Computed example of a mutant assay.
Amino acid sequence: MTDYDVLRVFCGPSGGYGNELGVVRDGSLMPGRDERQTFAAKLGFSETVFVDDPERGIIDIYTPTLRLPFAGHPCVGTAWLLDLPELVTPAGVVGARQDGEFSWIEARPEWAPPRTLRQYATAAEVDGLAVPPLGEWVYAWAWEDESAGRIRARGFPGRMDERGVSRSSGAGACTGGIGEDEATGAAALLLTARLGRALNIRQGAGSQILTAPQPEGWVEVGGRVFLER
């Protein structure tokens, strides 16, 4: 089988949780879209990245069922792994930087796929939500501490065609493509653009996502990344 790395992105302060990511560093070994799609489905991660140029940072992102022009946690994880100042995706050039234990990317909200951002009155309400039936992609959130920008969030994909089968472990794992996404950079990006302020998001069972709005409509998204193998 083609060699690939496995990362966890948006990990909690203790290094746990986060969203798993597969990265094929030598995309030339599997150049065709069909074979990449088949390989991503075989791995079963929510996303798999194929690196087409490790020096320029050209990447190609796949879920188990489709190709994505941009995705948050794949860009954060791949930028950390390759240690590059930018990545080139079909959506556009993604800026990247490392700051201590956090890996950051800079992207545009319009690159993210649509999400329903649904606010609840309390974090306890978000904690008590059941996984909804098939339907819209819902990012449920509530303020934990509005003055400090702290948010409690959970992501419910609600569609098999966007997530496929996830191998992520823990309470946030998807099951058969329907369930809960443990850490969602694109949704955090959209929420930051809507609220217009820096956020510290606790998502899923214990993942952490940091964000900050930037000039001219850009948004930074950051988190901890760990290499599993």
Rank of each mutant, 00 (worst) to 15 (best):
P109V: 03
L134A: 15
L82I: 03
E86R: 13
A140E: 05
R108W: 14
G95Q: 04
V94H: 12
V94G: 10
A107F: 11
A112I: 02
S103L: 09
W111T: 03
D83S: 13
W143L: 00
E125N: 02
R115F: 14
R97T: 09
V131P: 09
L117F: 00
L87P: 09
A130F: 12
G128N: 13
E106F: 14
P132Y: 13
A142N: 08
L84P: 04
S103K: 03
E106K: 10
G100R: 02
G95R: 02
Y139E: 04
P132L: 11
P109N: 03
Q119V: 08
V88H: 15
F102D: 13
E101S: 10
P113E: 12
V138F: 01
T122K: 01
G95M: 06
A140I: 02
P90C: 14
F102N: 06
R118G: 00
G95C: 08
D99G: 00
V88R: 12
D83A: 14
T116P: 01
Q98I: 13
W111M: 07
Q119D: 03
W143R: 00
F102V: 11
D83R: 13
L129A: 07
R108D: 09
Y139Q: 00
L129Q: 04
E106T: 15
V131I: 15
T89A: 10
Y120A: 08
L129Y: 11
V93A: 06
E106W: 08
